[in-house]
């Protein structure tokens, strides 16, 4: 997708349709919220600021979850949301901003971030129905050289 807010909505709607047979109900909503916030954060804050930069997204189904990998535009500085998040309970209820990173983390079951093939990748996993009774504290899978 191109790095525009309009493309965020288009991408998320495509994603929602693609995972609709796997994630349903609250799980689907959590996925939609988390990915929307992640993509919006990249579009608004990541360099380069030009709309012709590309954000790439890969969706994979594994036995226990749907994994959405989001690749920053080439050249963007690393930004691990886990290092900058203000958790939702700490956000002033009357604040008009500051919830995005908290929502990414709150709504995804597993969050990983790190360099992959020269680009920064945010990986968000959403457990399928019946799998999220107790959310894992460790990643579903770990790749070498990646933060988790």
């Amino acid at each position: 997708m191109q790095k525009t807010l309009e493309d965020v909505d288009l991408m998320v709607m495509s994603l929602k349709a693609a995972v609709s047979m796997v994630l349903t109900g609250d799980d689907a909503v959590r996925c939609e919220i988390s990915v929307t916030e992640a993509l919006t954060n990249i579009v608004v804050h990541a360099n380069p600021k030009t709309a012709d930069a590309f954000v790439d997204l890969i969706v994979t189904e594994i036995p226990q979850a749907v994994v959405v990998e989001i690749f920053d535009p080439a050249g963007a500085e690393a930004f691990d949301p886990r290092d900058h998040v203000k958790l939702l309970p700490a956000v002033d209820p009357m604040a008009e901003s500051g919830r995005g990173l908290g929502l990414i983390l709150k709504c995804a079951d597993v969050v990983r971030y790190g360099p992959v093939d020269g680009r920064n990748r945010l990986s968000l996993a959403f457990l399928k129905a019946g799998r999220n009774q107790s959310r894992p504290k460790k990643p579903i899978a770990t790749q070498s050289g990646e933060n988790s």
Partner: peptide, 30 residues
């Protein structure tokens, strides 16, 4: 669908109306 920016805008208009009046919401889907 409503994201955090939409929510922030809603909070903004609630603050704008402040104590001068009432602002309520209706019809939220699940």
């Amino acid at each position: 669908f409503l994201d955090s920016s939409g929510l922030g805008a809603l909070v903004g208009v609630l603050k704008k109306i402040g104590h001068r009046g009432d602002l309520v919401v209706s019809g939220l889907n699940s």
